[in-house]
Design a protein around this nucleic acid. Structure first.
Lengths: 348, 348
DNA sequence: TTGTACGCGTTATCAT
DNA sequence: ATGATAACGCGTACAA
């Protein structure tokens, strides 16, 4: 006993498949009596349309793919939610693929989504498949979120935040508080976000006429943006001498790791160490200290990404667009003016 | 200029579509020379298989649907991640649909997924579409997560936690600390979780020979499981007289709301009020107080749900199964033995 | 207003 | 080892 098809419905209603199709899709003209018969048959036999067949016929799948580095990071969670809710209004479904920042996995995911013939792709890329993404962007509408790729042939939009300025805000905040020995915990430079944030950091420092000592930057090839790296970074920076009086952390997940480490190590924040970080941290209102951060609106990015993707699906011939969120500083309890005595030592 | 199809490849390679198909799928036998020609053609023209056509032909879509009440709740985030990672090993893709506990939205989502002919469904239901879910469960493999439905015709598995026992653990913990005036913040009874947790609460109370005063239970028809309700619940309970000396919160999102409210209202925890809640809270290691909770392993539930769904896809004729996670108490800083004086007053 | 028939891209059966 | 072809379920141009 198989699933009923449009043929079965047609037979049951005593009409042709064409008529059934017309009733289902509201196309053409059908006498109301006939329509009623068809609707009844559909009800009776519990008929469900087969989207695969429709997609094949119409060459439209009504599916969008979302490639994301870590679906557990609240930044991407909120992004996913807002994307999904925009897509719903247009009757699109969202296929979510998690990469854990593994480039091979990302490529496999994208390939599979291409085979599904998704109508569009929102990608938070690992930044390690630039050529491949460049090539598929010629075929299918693509919106990059958060991270950019290195390519001048890429065809699509970018929605992210102004990492350079955000990081400058964060760093300048520490500088304004008198800090000079400032440590940075950041990621592999392959990530455009990591790179731009590092540059923002350096720019703020250089504007304050401080020569950045690279040993105060925790970063290694292959490190990611996760809690473990945040912990390791703290451990490393606290081992330096002179010890930094402040630390900038380049994203929320690392910041969580950093705070966990510092709290366990019983470092007094902000007395012994100021800590600032990039991006909102979930539930931080309940932390023992409210972190000083620059904001990063996941919802804004998700909404813009979805809206732009849809417009791109409707009109393929659109030039590349950039939507950039401008971060603002949110001062919390984790940063304070440097102790004058310390400042004396570290300024020599 | 259209996407190349298997026909184009066949023409370019000078073979039939059947041979191309054989090469792609590794079925049948193909001379290595011919295979090479085909592979080259595929490369050259950037051919991508069309899953829609394959699905239509084979009646297998390799897609799974995940209906979830709130993709931003870390409980479901971690669940989604583990589901996705299990499915990946079997080459399934996951379509994520967020309902915000809106039953109409849930139904629309499920209907659409049925039209996509997903091979299976993992549902964290609103508990308001029992009949509908019961009916589709006859057609497609279904695994319910967290919440049950009311139905004896449902065909599928359930993976969740032992809410009754978990809540007893939580309540007994407070009772052991001497609390007698215990408030409860919980959800609409339509949720099976809410109902089971309420019963667990009552059972623990009755075993301690305490008659539960319903006015100490914050719950109204239509309330959900979210932060706002947690806040409102606290506000309400603190207005009672005698004021409860302890509060049990029925899930993590409400607990977050409760803690936000209590912190803002400057209620001293646990001196003035003990607070315990059901389920892990994200980043709670960094809270100003570590919450006392019973555990709830999202990863376990996600893994089990995915594994069971796959086994059910492979063998449709399996009886209903129940996988139940057993919670354990994790004592934190938000609960303490009652002040003897208070105990005197409230015990009269 | 309704029905017939073709084709979407693929796989599988049956020849050769 | 390979090719021709039917079939999957649907939408639509065309005919009636």
């Amino acid at each position: 006993m198989n699933e009923p098809t449009i043929k079965d419905v047609a037979r049951a209603a005593g009409v042709s498949t064409a008529t059934v199709s017309r009733v289902i899709n509201g196309t053409g003209t059908v006498r109301s009596g006939t329509a009623a018969k068809v609707k009844k048959a559909i009800q009776d036999m519990n008929y469900i349309q087969n989207s695969m067949a429709t997609s094949l016929k119409l060459n439209k799948t009504k599916m969008i793919g979302f490639i994301v580095s870590n679906i557990c990071n609240s930044h991407f969670t909120y992004m996913a939610k807002s994307i999904e809710s925009v897509l719903n209004t247009e009757n699109y479904s969202l296929i979510v693929c998690n990469t854990d920042d593994n480039p091979e996995l990302e490529k496999r995911h994208i390939q599979r989504l291409m085979e599904y013939h998704v109508e569009g792709l929102i990608i938070n890329t690992t930044c390690m498949n630039d050529k491949y993404i460049e090539s598929i962007s010629q075929t299918v509408p693509v919106v990059l979120v958060s991270r950019r790729i290195n390519s001048n042939m890429f065809c699509g939009d970018f929605v992210g935040s102004n990492n350079f300025e955000g990081m400058k805000l964060l760093t300048r905040h520490l500088l304004d508080l008198g800090h000079r020995q400032i440590g940075l915990i950041t990621s592999d430079l392959k990530f455009s976000t990591g790179k731009e944030r590092l540059e923002g950091f350096k720019s703020a420092m250089s504007e304050a006429n401080i020569i950045v000592d690279d040993s105060y930057i925790y970063r290694y090839d292959g490190n990611l943006f996760n809690e473990i790296d945040g912990m390791d970074g703290c451990r490393y920076l606290l081992g330096l001498s002179p010890r930094p009086t402040a630390i900038v952390v380049a994203n929320n997940a690392m910041a969580i790791g950093a705070f966990k480490f510092l709290r366990t190590a019983q470092i007094q924040i902000p007395e012994q160490l100021s800590v600032v970080s990039y991006g909102n941290i979930s539930n931080s209102e309940l932390f023992w200290l409210t972190p000083t951060i620059v904001t990063l609106s996941s919802t804004y990015i998700g909404n813009e990404a979805a809206k732009n993707l849809i417009s791109r699906i409707k009109n393929t011939h659109i030039g590349n667009r950039e939507i950039v969120y401008e971060p603002t500083l949110k001062t919390g309890d984790t940063s304070k003016a440097i102790n004058p005595l310390k400042s004396f030592y570290s300024n020599n």
